[in-house]
Computed example of a mutant assay.
Amino acid sequence: MNRFNALLFSLLLSLAAPPGFSQATTEALADEGERLAALLRVGRRVVSNNQTLINDPDRGDKGLDSAAFLAKVDAAYRAQHGQGPLDGDLSDTQRRLTEAQLAAMATVLDENQELINSEGLGFKGFIPAIFGRLVNEQFAEQVGSEARLKVTAPMHLVRNRKARPDDWEAGVFNGQFSQPDWPRSQAFFETVATGEGEMFRMLIPEYYGETCLTCHGGPKGEVDVTGFPKEGAAAGDLAGAISITLKRE
């Protein structure tokens, strides 16, 4: 994080903390959100890196059961962050939510073994976006309103109705993230009052990489392998965001 981003992060921390929420509490919530997003991203990347294997029509058992998948996730997370997702000085809440997220990934892999191992079928549709949505749904079943993750995007980029932004997310897309001077990859967060109590909300922008352009690049309007028209995006364009909601009593 450069000096400017560090200063902005500190400012956002102070602005996001309402009465009853200290800056230290807000910082802990922001760190918790970043950790959840980081693990989700690693899981999606493992799915992406294994697309050729998953879509191999000539091979049955892909050797990608939940145990093998979680081993790949752990290795990829260690390579990026220097330690495993459950290593380090985690709070009880961080450990519980991380374990729930890993369990959600295992459940998704277990429930999709028949599809992944189907012989004679090429493209399976088990892609990072689908994996991410299914994991987030499983995670929600385990932790309830304590924490929620969602991958969303500006309305003109949404392909699945479940990914549509709510009013708060749309406001950030049309506000902060649309500003030309908003620092790349900088999350926006604040605490908002809801019918469920005070919620810490965080939106972490994501951008198209080169591998995304197979489905989301050009030519614009051409139907991709998933059956959707391509957006005509370029690498580095805003693709969407990971939305995180954390509840504290």
Rank of each mutant, 00 (worst) to 15 (best):
N2D: 15
N2W: 00
F4H: 13
A6M: 11
A6K: 13
L7Y: 09
S10Q: 13
S10W: 12
L11E: 13
L13W: 00
S14F: 10
P18A: 03
P19Y: 07
A24M: 07
D31P: 00
L36R: 01
V42D: 00
R44A: 15
Q51C: 03
I54S: 02
D56V: 02
R59W: 00
G60S: 05
G60V: 10
F69W: 04
L70S: 02
L70P: 00
A71E: 14
A71H: 08
A76K: 10
A79P: 02
A79T: 06
G82W: 07
D89I: 06
S91I: 07
D92R: 14
T93L: 12
Q94W: 02
T98N: 07
E99G: 12
A100Q: 08
A104N: 09
M105T: 06
T107G: 03
V108Y: 00
E111T: 10
Q113H: 08
Q113G: 02
L115H: 04
S118I: 01
E119K: 15
L121V: 15
L121Y: 09
L121I: 14
L121M: 13
F123T: 01
G125Y: 04
F126K: 02
F131Y: 15
F131P: 07
G132T: 14
V135L: 05
E137W: 09
G144H: 10
G144F: 08
A147G: 06
R148G: 09
L149E: 01
A153L: 02
A153W: 05
A153Y: 01
W168P: 09
N174K: 12
G175W: 07
S178M: 06
F189I: 04
T191E: 02
V192E: 11
G195D: 14
M199N: 06
I204A: 11
Y207T: 09
T211F: 10
C215N: 07
H216M: 05
G217E: 07
V225F: 10
F228N: 13
E231D: 15
E231N: 11
G232L: 04
A233P: 09
G236S: 07
D237K: 04
A241E: 07
S243T: 05
S243F: 11
I244M: 03
